[in-house]
Amino acid sequence: MHGPAWPAWLLVALCAATGAYCLLRMRSGVEEQRRAAGGEALMGFGMAAMAVPATVFSPPGWAWPLYAAVFGAAALRAVWAARASPHHLHHLVGTGAMVYMSLTMALSPTAHHHAHAGTGVPLVTGALLLYFTGYVLLSGARLVPVAATDGTGVGTAPGSRAAVRWGDRPELARACRLSMGIGMVAMLLAM
Rank of each mutant, 00 (worst) to 15 (best):
S139E: 07
V164I: 15
H88R: 12
P7C: 02
Y67T: 03
C22P: 05
E32W: 11
T125F: 06
H114D: 11
P158R: 07
P53H: 00
L23D: 03
A190C: 10
M187T: 04
M105D: 06
G181Q: 02
R35T: 15
L11N: 05
A8F: 01
V52M: 10
A162N: 07
V52N: 03
A147W: 14
P59S: 09
A147E: 13
M50N: 01
R142W: 08
T152N: 05
A16F: 07
G151P: 02
C176H: 03
P59Q: 08
A74Y: 03
V12P: 01
L137N: 06
G183F: 00
M184T: 03
A147Y: 12
P4V: 04
L172F: 12
L178P: 09
G140T: 02
R161G: 15
A75K: 00
A48M: 03
V144F: 05
Q33Y: 10
P122N: 12
T152E: 08
L10D: 05
M184F: 01
G181A: 02
A37H: 04
L14I: 09
M105W: 07
A82C: 10
S108Q: 14
R83D: 11
A162K: 13
H88N: 14
M47I: 11
H113M: 09
G183D: 00
A127I: 08
T125D: 11
L137C: 14
G181Y: 01
A41P: 13
F132N: 00
I182D: 00
V56F: 15
R165T: 09
L92Y: 01
H113V: 10
T152R: 08
G167T: 15
A115E: 13
L10M: 13
A190F: 02
G120N: 08
L23Y: 06
H114L: 14
A97I: 06
L76H: 03
G153A: 00
C22Q: 14
M105R: 10
V56L: 15
V12I: 13
A16D: 02
V185L: 04
A75W: 03
S160G: 10
A78R: 01
V185R: 06
L128P: 00
A63G: 05
H114K: 09
A8L: 10
R25I: 05
A175Y: 04
G72C: 02
R77C: 06
P59H: 07
T125L: 07
M180N: 05
A36Q: 14
V12F: 02
W9N: 11
A186W: 00
L189G: 11
V146Q: 12
L103E: 08
Y100R: 07
Y100W: 09
